[in-house]
Simulated assay, not measured.
Amino acid sequence: MRIGWQYPIRTLSERVRDLRRLYLPPDPASRTTYQAGEIAQCDLWFPDVEIPVGYGEVRTAASLPVMTMVCGYTRWTQRC
């Protein structure tokens, strides 16, 4: 071989595979960090109910959706 490796090629391939992981640049998606409660996901919820809006009027979820927020790394939720 050109690199002077005197052992089986399989041993070299396995070693190169292990070393390659050490020299790869870090994945930008995996470097993102957040503190507890620092990030939240917001969604619209369309419940199958009629919501009273006052003065005897009601609205369906299609005309008055509910916004939900879930904080990252917590089990606490809030509906607005």
Rank of each mutant, 00 (worst) to 15 (best):
M1E: 11
M1K: 12
R2C: 06
I3D: 13
W5L: 00
Q6F: 07
Q6G: 09
Y7C: 04
Y7E: 12
I9Q: 13
I9N: 11
R10T: 14
T11L: 15
T11Q: 15
L12G: 02
S13I: 08
S13R: 15
R15G: 04
V16T: 04
V16R: 10
V16K: 08
R17Q: 07
R17E: 06
R17A: 15
D18N: 11
L19W: 07
R20N: 09
R20H: 06
L22K: 15
L22H: 05
Y23K: 10
L24N: 01
L24P: 01
P25N: 01
P26I: 05
P28T: 07
S30Y: 08
S30H: 11
R31M: 14
R31D: 11
T32M: 12
T32H: 09
T32L: 14
T33Q: 15
Y34T: 07
Q35I: 04
Q35L: 13
A36L: 12
A36W: 04
G37S: 10
G37V: 04
G37W: 07
E38C: 04
I39E: 09
I39Q: 12
A40M: 08
A40F: 08
L44E: 10
L44C: 02
W45Y: 14
W45T: 10
W45H: 04
F46T: 08
F46L: 11
F46W: 10
F46N: 05
P47V: 00
P47G: 00
P47K: 07
D48Q: 09
D48G: 05
V49K: 04
E50P: 01
I51Y: 03
P52A: 02
P52H: 05
G54C: 06
G54S: 06
G54Y: 06
G54K: 03
Y55M: 09
Y55I: 01
G56C: 08
G56Y: 11
G56A: 06
V58K: 15
V58L: 08
R59D: 00
A61G: 11
A62I: 08
S63D: 07
L64M: 02
L64R: 03
P65D: 02
M69A: 13
M69P: 00
V70I: 07
C71G: 05
C71Y: 13
C71L: 15
G72H: 12
G72V: 03
G72K: 07
Y73D: 06
T74I: 07
W76C: 09
W76V: 13
Q78R: 12
C80K: 11
C80H: 13
